[in-house]
Amino acid sequence: MATLKELSKQDELLSGGHRLCAGCGIPPIVRLVLRAANGPVVATTATGCLEVGTTIYPYTAWRIPWIHSAFENAAATISGIETAYRALKKRGRIPEDKNIKFIAFGGDGGTYDIGLQALSGALERGHNFLYLCYDNGAYMNTGIQRSSATPFYSNTTTSPAGKVIPGKQEWRKDLTRIVVAHNVPYAAQASPHNWSDLSKKAEKALNIEGPTFLNVMSPCPLGWYTKPEDSIKLAKLSVDTCYWPLYEVENGVLKITYKPKEKKPLLDWLKPQGRFKHLMTPENRHLLDKFQERVDLEWQRLLDLDGKRL
């Protein structure tokens, strides 16, 4: 894997000057992953913050061929592109020695929810591509509505912390497990604070033949009600509290790639975030406990699977 120094010398494939918010988790994730491709790469992006923020005509932040077509179809769009590549290569219209990598980027809404069918189809068909989901835990681009990735009890504009209902009532969908159930050769969870882990996983994913998947924690100061300068710290806390474990499943074998020396209380991650403010009152103490219990349970489940063939 490239060292930090080497990475810093590579061309920046996503330019600055885009319109994503200060402190947004998406740009560092995308830049790291594009660098990991280490060669020609073509990408598509589902409708969402990344798409809107990088391509306001007549500007584009993408220094690679890139397409956005709709919200729910990034996986289907990349299927078409990757298939065209194979078709044209077979017919000698692309040089034999030219090797292009394909990446589809989607937010949690575009991946866990509306794009799940297209994702499942593309994984099942076995196209050679990497799907990267940046999970900021809500439909941020349209004003912080809940998605099936939104954390327990989170206050969003469609799961507001109201007088009777304290935020989102459902546990988040475990998309990574759903992807793994497609028997893809590689799927992993990552976080931008741990750049070397993310880079390593991206490099691995991009060099494996077949469909691969990365689910990456992506802090969003706007939707989390947090300070832009705290984003990377919060990404780290999501991992150190074991809310967002870093692990990979390679050829069916699960491996936790980072185990916090000391598992931090979930409260450390929740407290700085305005979306969980309503949980900080004494009457909602039991909700915090419930949330912590569920995180503990999920983490233990993962620990039990560590090193095992699923």
Partner: peptide, 21 residues
């Protein structure tokens, strides 16, 4: 490409056509 829906059929057509096919 034996896609999983017509929405994906047209989406894949769009991707492939934009790729020059």
């Amino acid at each position: 490409i034996t896609v999983e829906s017509e929405h994906s059929a047209m989406s894949a057509c769009i991707g492939a056509a934009a790729a020059g096919a």
